[in-house]
Design a protein around this nucleic acid. Structure first.
Lengths: 115, 115
DNA sequence: CGGAATCCAGTGGGATACTG
DNA sequence: CAGTATCCCACTGGATTCCG
């Protein structure tokens, strides 16, 4: 089920929650950070995520795809088959927010660390 | 445990994840929306959150307090005792991000609904 | 009034193994 | 190479009850 379906199914829809549901997941935020730089292959992505298993990466990519934040393209002419992932227009429109949250988090960490 | 402790405990710290951990919780985003308008009492807050139990509200407020996003003040001279919650400076600095995410979510919902 | 304690169900995510 | 399938555990959040 997509994040939007999860929301609309139960009464009230808070747009803020919709956005949060899309971003939340063990590896989603960092995947989004990576894809901000451009298209990546499954294994390339995996290699930039130490500690992430293929299963988890596949799951998180699947959810982001269903929410139309990223898109997957498969090159069948290649051998072995190559699959690539990149941000959609919707995903790209999230970048400023991601950057703002990343910056806020960095400030937050510095503030609380200096106590 | 605070969101920051959760992060720093396990190796890598992604500031974006720190921010997300703070915002995620069944009622946190909507609580933050409410407190943006100003200070509120426990019961006042509860009344604006249909479906939220006292236990859940108390839990979410506790976590937000530990993360220093909101602050709780208790008026012992009143009878019955009154407790109020309001945003801290850190919490206030989150408002633009919250508004941006809310706006993005609204656009997202409209975009996907018109398919 | 504003919680805390206890119990319980659903789910996110880890380990491992298998596949087109 | 790029995934699925299974099993399992820990944690989030719900229901209910009790307390200062």
């Amino acid at each position: 089920m997509t994040a939007l379906e999860m929301q609309t199914r139960h009464g009230e829809v808070c747009p803020l929650d919709t956005t949060l549901k899309i971003l939340v997941g063990k590896w989603k935020s960092i995947i989004l950070c990576r894809l901000t730089a451009g298209e990546l292959r499954f294994t390339e992505l995996l290699n930039t995520l130490p500690g992430c298993t293929r299963r988890m990466l596949a799951l998180q990519l699947q959810e982001l795809s269903q929410d139309q934040i990223i898109i997957k393209t498969v090159d069948l002419t290649a051998s072995p088959i190559k699959t690539s992932y990149r941000l959609t227009a919707l995903g790209t429109s999230l970048i400023p927010i991601i950057q703002a949250m990343d910056a806020w988090g960095a400030t937050y960490i510095k503030t609380l660390s200096s106590n």
